[in-house]
Each structure stands twice: as structure tokens, then as C-alpha cells.
Design a protein around this nucleic acid. Structure first.
Lengths: 298, 298
DNA sequence: GACATTCATAGGGAAAGCTCATGAATTGAT
DNA sequence: ATCAATTCATGAGCTTTCCCTATGAATGTC
């Protein structure tokens, strides 16, 4: 056998109070139990810790030395408990995840704001990567989860759709544009348009879907970053072709999105996580917030 | 309930080996017991520490954090155990005691030499005080014991005679002196003598004992320190009147002691310790050595 | 697809832990 | 000085914990 924290607790209590009876009260056990614990730890350590008469309890030299070590261990135990409890209740900790650049700029700000309000002490480490890199980086790094658009299944991973945005035309809130419910891709062809470049995932999906219908997108401008497209739209250079979810309303209050139809194309934003691995409580809390915040959108 | 060291041991073993089965082997318990310990500590801390499939065990973030704290506590426990064991077996520690100046100079060197050989790592703190101060200092300070001449009983203390030296005439090893078995106090009066000053304990005892016999000591020289008396004797200035135990043979190889009789006066050297207080193991070891070393003398 | 490995769970017996009751020693008050 | 009160130690008995054996379920391997 070995010394136990229980014994150490009894020891420090007796040491401090200089009394087995008082220590017992403090520990919430009986005097006899405390007496036994002291005998046990003495036997365990092979050293007398208290000179006990029927009247008084006097710590020995060895006890003086042991006391500090014991206190330290008990304090460590308490710190550990508290820390773990904080982690469990997402009062502390750290959430590190991957986000595709698009998701990071358009979707995450709202999620982050809400999460921060609920869990102010949790560190957040967002690693924003190009959409193509999302899955490879997820496999390679220790990120707990990833948010972004993912096609198909990935082995060892679970994919959950958080929200899916319809491909939309985004333009300034003119009376004429605001009145529309939707636009067809054909109608779009008449106007100046701003689309993502052909080597982006969004564009590939568009080209693929239109191709199946025998159609083709010929944008006026092609850009790499979503924000660039939106900024250009805000300047009136044309309609941006993007999933509606990618429009941060607060950042571009003048812009509105109208779904594109014939064909309607939706682009999911998914949560990616490792199969069989529980998320840290902090990450769970974050994902929960993301689900509720994003679910409210189309 | 609370987290136990047992659980922490299981936790660190599983964390390191990444396997409950291997950890169980390491701990010397069964796999099922180990599995239970992990479940317990998880319940205790309120946090999942391992993602377990039927096949593998994967530590969580929380486990990474907890691991260091756990290792520290376990290492503290081990250090504490070892330290206490060392103290118990007098392989480490410290012995602080009081010694009257006479005892310190004449008796202790041999004791110290032997003790040091047997217990090289123990710190020794000798507080040599005037004979009169021995008891007051013993009461006032935290010395574990005291060595010196003590008369009568002292409350709260136990007095044990370690050795008692007969008052003797100490002189150079001349043929004539060496041949004698003893001297009477009367014979002594014919020769130059060196005695302790009247305000010393030794002298007081002598004067008292001689007074009872109607005799009186009139020394040629009176000194305060024993060593002074011996040095003077070695120079041939006269016979030193001291307890035989006070003559360190190795320091004054030319001197020998002959008991003084009519009356024979003995002066005890005692060990003084607090009643009801156990000595530290180091002190016990020291006292044991002192007893054996001093017992061999008259 | 059979086999081996790994973790989880159930049952039972051993050990530990706690409480209650009691005893012994000492202090303080009447 | 006696008596009451306090304090620590010990023993009996009960409850809880602990651990082992046996078995089941899942997964990877040949």
C-alpha cells in the first residue's frame, strides 16, 4: 500500500489544529477515524508524526517537514479538481478549429460574438485555411473540428451540415432588385456579374451544376476573395454570385441577396469532426452555439 | 468523495501507455480494476479523460492538462515517502542539542566521530553553553536533548546518567605518578594544583563534598576552562582536579588521571530530554551512539 | 470469416473505512 | 482531594469500497 490523500488530509488537519478531535470535526468524520488515519500514515511513512498524550498532540520534526509537502499535494489536488471542473463546464479552456476562409469571414463573426459572451474565458484559435486545404489540414493537425463546405464523405470523420446557403445574386438594395423574389441564371447573364474564380470550390460547384443543365456562367469579373466580390458589388460594379450565407448583413448593409433558380444550387456549410473522438467541453459549447446561430439562417 | 492517488496512478499509467491493459500490468492490478479507476476519476473530475473504443484509448485535451498535475502529485508523494523513510532510518535529518562546555570539549569529540561515521548525512548542531545555562536553555529552546551535568530532578524532563567520572588528579605520566592507583585529597594538598574556579559547577560540587568532611581545597591555580587546566597540567604546572571523563586522551596523550579518594566524588554526565516527547530518529541514533561510547568509560 | 486483442460490465468475496461504545489519562473546578 | 470534563486510543460491528474472475461486445488481423 501507499500513502493516501485521505491520510494527508487528516495529517494536515491535525497538524494545524494540534488536536485530533478538532481535526475530526473539520474533516467531518469521527475522532476515532481520524486517530486511525494518523496511525496509518505514520505506519506508512515509517515515522512518528505526533507525540500524543491523552491530552495533547505535539508534532514532531518529521511532521514539520512533511506538512509542507502534504499541503502542496492537497492544494495540487484541489487545483486539479477545479481546473477540470472549469474545463468540463466550459468556463476555461481553449477551442482550436479550422475554418475555410469563406466561413471564417461571413459566418463566424456572429458565432464568435455569441460564444464569447457566454464563455468569456475560453481561448479561441481559428485557423482559417483555403477551402481546398480544409480536409487535409484537418487530418494533419490537432484541430478538434472544422467548419466549411465539404463534399461527400470523409473516412474517420463525421460531417454534419450546419446550414446551407442557396447560391444567390447579391446586389444593392434598389427598388427594382428588392422587389424580386429570385433570379434565374439566364436573367443574370444580362447583367454585369462578379463571381469567384474558376479554381475556387464555390465556382467549381457552380460550373458543374450549370454544366449539367447545358448552361455556362460568364462573369464580368472574377475574384478570389469573397470580401472583394462583396466590396465590388457594394460599389455597384455588378451582382455578386455567392451563397446567401456568405453575405454578412452588418458589414454590407446596402446589399441584399436573391436566390438564383433554374437551377437552384445550394452550398452546405458543414461541421467536420473526427469519428470516435469527443470534443472538449469548450469545443462542444462552441459547436452548440454555431448550430443555433447558423440554423436560424437559410 | 474526492480524487485519490490511486486513481491518479491509474490515470498516468493509462496516459503514458495509451492502453488500459498495459497500464494494468504496470500497476500490478487487473485490467478491469484499471478500467474502473479511470471511470472513477472521470466521474470525480467531471471530465472525460480518454476517448475509449473497444480497441484504443485516446487521451483528451483535458487529460493532457491533468497529466502534468498528476505526475507532480505522484512525484511529491514519492519524495515525501522517501524523505520520511530517510528520516526514520536516520539517513537524513538534523540533530540539534545542547552541551555544557565541558562535555562538549572532552566527551563529545569521540561521540561525534563515531556518529558521523555511521550517519554521514545528518546535520549536527551543537549548542555549547555554560553549565549553568544548560537547563534554562533546554526549557527555552527547541533543542531535542542536552548533555551535561545536572543535579537533581527537573520537571517535565527526564534525566539519564550516561557516564559518571570520578573526580581525579590529572598529571603527566611520570613513573612515580603512573604507579599510583589513587590519591587522597590530603595528599593532593602537598602539590601544586589546578582547579576550576569557585563559580563553576564542578568546583561547587567539590567544595560542597569536601566541606562535609571538614576539608578544604586550596588550589594553586584557578581557571575557567577545562582545556586551560589540562594545558597547564601538560606543561607541568601542577595536577588538574577534574572528573576523569573530562580528559580527552587523544588530545593530551601525556596526561593520565588517578582517582581522588577520601572522599571519592563522582560527577555524572547526564542526558536530559523532554518528557513525553520522542526524539527524532536522528537524535535517537545520536543518543544511542553517545550511550555506547560513553558507557565504556568509568 | 475465424481469431486475437482490447475495453466494459456483472457478481462475489476480501479488505478497508467508519461509527459507536468504552477505556485510560489528564486537566481544571468545586 | 474529589469530581466532571476533555482528549486520545481501542475494539466490535456494520457499511462501503476494492479487486478479481468470468464474460460480453467491438474491432482489427490473417
Amino acid at each position: 500500500m501507499n500513502v493516501t490523500l485521505r491520510q494527508l488530509r487528516a495529517f494536515t488537519a491535525v497538524y494545524r489544529t494540534r488536536s485530533i478531535t478538532r481535526a475530526a470535526r473539520e474533516l467531518g468524520i469521527t475522532q476515532s477515524a481520524t486517530s486511525l488515519l494518523i496511525q496509518q500514515i505514520e505506519a506508512q511513512l515509517g515515522v512518528r508524526l505526533f507525540d500524543r498524550s491523552t491530552r495533547a498532540v505535539q508534532p514532531t520534526r518529521a511532521a514539520d517537514e512533511a506538512f509542507h509537502a502534504a499541503e502542496r499535494m492537497l492544494s495540487d489536488a484541489q487545483v486539479l479538481s477545479r481546473r477540470m471542473r472549469d474545463l468540463a463546464e466550459a468556463r476555461a479552456g481553449r477551442v482550436a478549429f479550422l475554418a475555410s476562409a469563406g466561413a471564417a469571414s461571413a459566418l463566424l463573426p456572429r458565432v464568435l460574438a455569441k460564444f464569447r459572451a457566454a464563455h468569456p474565458a475560453i481561448e479561441i484559435d481559428i485557423r482559417d485555411v483555403a477551402a481546398d486545404d480544409l480536409v487535409p489540414r484537418m487530418i494533419a493537425t490537432d484541430a478538434e473540428f472544422a467548419i466549411g463546405s465539404v463534399e461527400g464523405e470523409i473516412s474517420e470523420m463525421t460531417v454534419e451540415t450546419l446550414t446551407s446557403g442557396r447560391l444567390s445574386a447579391i446586389g444593392r438594395r434598389t427598388a427594382e432588385f428588392a422587389a424580386r423574389r429570385s433570379l434565374t441564371w439566364d436573367e443574370l447573364a444580362q447583367q454585369p456579374t462578379i463571381a469567384m474564380r474558376s479554381d475556387t470550390r464555390i465556382r467549381m460547384q457552380i460550373d458543374l451544376a450549370l454544366g449539367l443543365e447545358g448552361k455556362r456562367l460568364t462573369p464580368t469579373y472574377e475574384v478570389t476573395l469573397i470580401n472583394t466580390a462583396l466590396a465590388m458589388t457594394a460599389q455597384g460594379l455588378g451582382l455578386a454570385i455567392l451563397p446567401a450565407t456568405m453575405l454578412p448583413a452588418d458589414q454590407f448593409p446596402t446589399l441584399i441577396a436573391k436566390p438564383l433558380i433554374r437551377p437552384a444550387i445550394t452550398r452546405p456549410v458543414s461541421l467536420l469532426q473526427r469519428q470516435g473522438r469527443t470534443l472538449s467541453p469548450a469545443a462542444q459549447a462552441f459547436v452548440a452555439v454555431a448550430r443555433t446561430v447558423l440554423a436560424s439562417r437559410t
